[in-house]
Nucleic acid binder design. Structure first.
Length: 995
RNA sequence: GCUCAAGUGGCGGAAUUGGUAGACGCGCUGGAUUCAAAAUCCAGUUCUUUCGGGAGUGUGGGUUCGAUUCCCACCUUGAGUACCA
């Protein structure tokens, strides 16, 4: 019986599928455990070896938990709405649903080959109407909710209407729009329906608003802040401009504090928590109002340093600030307008890149200091951002570096309110100083002055303590086709939701996936995209009468809509009446272990926490955090392959024509660096020179045009697709024949440093880069499975190093893991059959087994999967040496390894006579008694250096150990005649002789 | 610039509370088997050495009988972030 991994793996994949081995039950006496992977976007490129890394880790954990007696939910699905399918549709006219389906099937085939224990009966796809029905439903729930700051949670909009009806809005403490007009109960009741709806829209958790958005003309859509990197779109790198549009927004800011607080209760990597904390950007301080004398205007600012209020020597407004044009004096008008124009012309990119230049202009206006009543000049400057805080700052040059630089640049006074030196730099510390020159704050510390200043501001009604967040409300509309349609239609321009019983509102057919000519989103092209409010059906656009038949929303939802709640759908994936049943939600609660990449830190992971908290507030869920524990798996990098090429050329006397001579030579990196510049062939090493000269001359004999041309050459580095490179970094040039890209290289020669030789296997130079199709360094897991099997792939991916660490994919070690599995197999059977016997195991074998149980269990609990692979290797090496054939050792060993290498474990398990899947077997129990030793190999150190070991009984007392060591002949040798000053004996550990 | 993480053989990496540095695997060297190769098996493999030893976990200090592990300073690399008032 040989280890035919391909047959074995196919057999067990089939068995698991037919027997639904990994189907989770929604009611069970066992404790529950929910293991989830971040679901993939099914791209056309398929999976590469980097994708399954996290899936393998979570699968090992899920299988381990099953052995440990848990009812495990371990599902998989697809985040199947998204841009690439739509881009492809635009280019080819192919419906995105079709490409998506094809891609999903490819993913599924690839996933299946690796032997994951997913419960596929619960698969979800965000683009499936049965699924997005509930995404739409959650949207309507958000629409019909408001955030009550008094109860600190979301409530149904009805509770707000009741308050309006009874007492108006003055006592309402809600998270809402800023420009709310106060009204009484009488006024509310007198408003017509339309007026009331307009007001309610200012309170809803999802609302329509003119928003300044990041518009990407090239993609024809709005992007979220986290979809923009360095001022260009994350996908495609297209420029992004600011533009005002009517958009759906989500009032995530209502949850800012709770999103922050929740971080303390979840087990996530610190860097991830840090980036959410930064993204939310809480800062505590005060809001201060500065009056502009002789006018009705006042400037409101936010400051984190109210203690420095007496250090204010000017104010700066963002150029976009609405007061700028109102307060600018006639004398300064020209300069101000010129400056505004100048900043508007600068692109976001420029403004970001250029942090050094200080610019600004005086408006001519003055504000009044709230305490000293001194006039304060008001400037504008583009270092103040319109989108943060109030778009205005009180500038304290002695305590803030930007204010300091600005003041220095424009010769504005810098009053010092610290007992510190500020002649060179601003003093920005918050400790180790006393306030001076500050009236009633003199002599106080930061903390004392802060409190006192806020109190004083509140007393004169010029300010109040305030907490500010950097987090903005999330724009929720996308001008896209391939996304969830909004369940919204418009009556007189006011949005109304479609009742839940009529959901889902399915995506309409369109003939093209582009925006319309007049700039409407692609859904503007649909002919049947109108809501009949009486019959509750989508009907043809011609029927719009705005009485019973109304236009539907043309935007679609963003990618994060479907992924914000999918974890709950898996709990009851096929439920047609609810998002998931109450019982399923109560039983599974939330995800115990979530594994995925760190790129979702401020997108998916923040939004899904927000939606979970909302669903919790509205009592659909019993938990308010989606993912209890989260692990970021490190990226697997590709090892791109390169060769250096010398290309001989012929150049016409005038230099206006050149011909590549088909006599390329591959050269080493060293030679390349020497002759890098190209040019005259006289500079080449002799053998190369001869080769080039001979070939070019030969060429010229047959090409009369080139007769007078000058011989020249260029050198370049070129990428070789890794599929042409073998495990020893060699490429076979003849293997190139069918690939257009390498046609020119097919017949290239090779210069080995001494001579030019023909058509040899050449070694490539490797460089570590991100694994991607465009870098030709993608390794497909299917190929590994073909060659070595899924069990080898699984173990090797784990063996590469710690899960969280980024590491390059290097095939060099895979043979070691593969031969380990062969060796493991040989423990159980040889060519003639099963070797396992019922004879009792030796003491040593039991020790090996229990040592392994202990280590593997600890490793899995600590997610240290790489070290358990080594542990298995050691165990197999030892058991092979011990010639162990005992069932009492080999049977538990098969269970131990089954989370890692499930196929081989199942096969051996059935050979051992079991009829049920090994996944039902309990995890072996560790028994300390097999590891108890009677003696210890004591390391004997001299001044901390280990010199030799000495075996002594473990129960030997300290004094006896010392005696035995001192009596040893080697001790005298290492002492070299010295008398030891001290002998440290730690029983069971070590002996150290000092002196 | 700021924040965080990490620096260990030729390579990936191991070392649980401070206690035998380099487990395990790759690669390399030598050997067995073979007509030969693959595969398999055995031995060796941190550096250095006058073969007694000596040095050694990014660098320099410190604490300790003893430091890869703890503390301080610095260097390098990687990741995130970017005028946040």
């Amino acid at each position: 019986m040989k280890y035919h991994f391909n047959d074995i793996e196919a057999k067990w994949r089939k068995y698991w599928e037919e027997n639904q081995t990994f189907q989770a039950q929604n009611n069970s006496d066992k404790p529950k455990y929910y293991v989830l992977d971040m679901f993939p976007y099914p791209s056309g490129a398929g999976l590469h070896v980097g994708h399954p890394l996290g899936y393998i880790a979570s699968d090992i954990y899920a299988r381990y938990k099953r052995h440990k007696g848990f009812n495990v939910l371990h599902p998989m699905g697809y985040d199947s709405f998204g841009l690439p399918a739509e881009q492809y549709a635009i280019q080819t006219g192919q419906h995105p649903a079709i490409t998506t389906e094809t891609n999903i099937n490819r993913y599924r085939e690839q996933l299946d080959r690796i032997g994951f224990s997913f419960d596929w009966s619960r698969e979800v796809r965000t683009s499936n109407p049965d699924y997005y029905k509930w995404t739409q439903w959650i949207f309507t729930e958000l629409f019909h909710s408001w955030y009550n700051k008094d109860t600190d949670k979301a409530e149904p909009i009805e509770t707000l209407i009741t308050q309006f009806t009874n007492e108006g809005n003055e006592l309402v403490n809600a998270v809402c729009d800023e420009d709310i007009i106060p009204f009484t109960a009488e006024m509310w009741n007198a408003y017509d329906e339309e007026q009331q709806q307009k007001i309610l829209l200012q309170y809803r958790l999802t609302y329509l608003a003119e928003t300044e958005v990041n518009w990407c003309p090239a993609l024809g859509t709005v992007l979220a802040n986290d979809e923009i990197v360095n001022g260009v779109s994350e996908r495609g790198g297209h420029p992004v401009v600011r533009k005002k549009m009517k958009q759906w927004s989500m009032r995530i800011t209502a949850y800012a504090q709770r999103l922050l607080d929740g971080l303390n209760r979840i087990d996530w990597p610190q860097p991830l928590k840090d980036s959410q904390t930064n993204w939310i950007g809480r800062s505590q301080g005060a809001s201060v109002k500065f009056q502009i004398p002789n006018s009705k205007f006042q400037i409101s600012v936010f400051t984190t340093r109210p203690d420095t209020i007496f250090g204010v020597s000017f104010m700066t407004l963002a150029p976009e600030h609405e007061l700028v044009e109102k307060i600018t004096t006639p004398e300064q008008k020209e300069a101000v307008e010129a400056y505004i124009e100048q900043t508007a012309r600068r692109s976001e990119r420029e403004r970001m890149a250029d942090v050094k230049t200080i610019s600004g202009v005086f408006t001519g206006a003055y504000a009044e200091h709230p305490f000293s009543k001194e006039p304060i000049p008001i400037w504008i400057g583009d270092y103040v951002l319109a989108s943060y805080g109030t778009g205005a700052v009180m500038a304290v040059p002695c305590g803030d570096e930007r204010d300091y630089a600005f003041a220095k640049h424009f010769n504005i006074p810098i009053p010092n309110i610290f007992d510190q030196d500020i002649s060179e730099n601003a003093f920005t510390e918050k400790e180790g100083f006393k306030i001076v020159n500050s009236d009633f704050l003199n002599g106080l510390s930061y903390k004392e002055a802060n409190e006192k200043a806020i109190e004083a501001l509140e007393n004169i009604d010029q300010g109040t303590g305030k907490i500010n967040y950097r987090l903005r409300d999330a724009v929720f509309s996308r001008q896209r086709y391939w996304g969830e349609p909004f369940p919204i239609y418009y009556v007189n321009g006011l949005p109304k939701t479609i009742d839940p019983e009529h959901l889902p509102i399915q995506l309409p057919e369109v003939e093209k996936y582009l925006p319309t000519e007049d700039g409407q989103p692609p859904l503007g092209r649909a002919d049947v995209w109108t809501w009949d409010a009486e019959k509750s059906v989508v009907v043809s656009n011609e029927l719009i009468d705005n009485e019973t038949i109304f236009p539907l929303e043309l935007n679609t939802m963003p990618g994060w809509a479907g992924s914000s709640w999918y974890l709950f759908r898996y709990m009851d994936a096929n439920n047609e009446d609810e998002l998931a049943s109450r019982e399923a939600l109560d039983y599974w609660q939330n995800v115990d272990l979530y594994i995925g990449g760190s790129e979702h830190a401020t997108g998916h992971l923040l939004y899904s926490r927000f939606w979970t908290k909302f669903l919790y507030d509205r009592e659909f869920l019993k938990v308010d955090e989606p993912f209890k524990k989260l692990i970021n798996q490190g990226m697997i990098l590709g090892e791109s392959a390169f060769v250096y090429v010398l290309q001989p050329k012929l150049i016409s006397p005038k230099g206006n024509d050149d011909i590549n001579v088909n006599a390329q030579v591959l050269i080493s990196k060293e030679v390349y660096e020497e002759i890098n510049d190209g040019g005259n062939i006289e500079s080449l090493p002799k053998p190369l020179y001869d080769f080039v000269f001979e070939n070019v001359k030969h060429f010229q004999e047959y090409n009369l045009r080139a007769k007078d041309y000058k011989i020249n050459f260029v050198c370049f580095k070129t990428t070789i697709d890794v599929k042409y490179v073998n495990i020893s970094n060699e490429i076979n040039l003849t293997g190139f024949s069918e690939d257009e890209r390498y046609k020119a290289l097919k017949n290239a020669s090779y210069f080995d440093g001494e001579k030019v030789i023909n058509n040899q296997d050449v070694k490539v130079v490797r460089e570590v880069e991100k694994m991607s199709k465009s870098k030709y360094n993608v390794v497909n897991p299917d190929d590994i499975c073909d060659q070595y099997g899924a069990d080898t792939l699984r173990m090797y991916e784990m063996f590469l190093g710690p899960l969280e660490q980024a590491k390059p994919w290097n095939m060099a070690g895979i043979t070691g893991v593969h031969s380990f599995l062969k060796k493991f197999w040989k423990l159980y059977c040889d060519d003639y059959g099963l070797l396992v016997t019922d004879s009792p195991a030796s003491k040593d074998s039991l020790k090996t087994l229990h040592k392994t149980i202990k280590k593997v269990e600890e490793d899995i609990e600590n997610f240290s999967f790489n070290t358990s692979v080594s542990t298995f290797m050691i165990a197999v090496n030892e058991l092979t040496a011990q010639k162990c054939t005992s069932r009492e050792v080999l049977e538990p060993l098969a269970v131990l390894i089954s989370p890692y290498a499930p196929h081989i474990a199942e096969e051996l398990w059935s050979k051992l006579g079991h009829t049920e899947s090994i996944s039902t077997a309990p995890f072996p129990e560790f028994d300390e008694k097999h590891l108890v030793e009677s003696t210890k190999e004591y390391p004997i150190s001299f001044n901390g250096k280990m010199r030799f070991t000495l075996e002594l009984p473990l129960d030997l007392p300290k004094e006896e150990i010392e005696k035995a060591v001192m009596a040893h002949e080697k001790t005298q040798h290492y002492l070299e005649g010295r008398t030891p000053k001290k002998v440290i004996v730690v029983p069971g550990k070590i002996v150290n002789i000092v002196g």
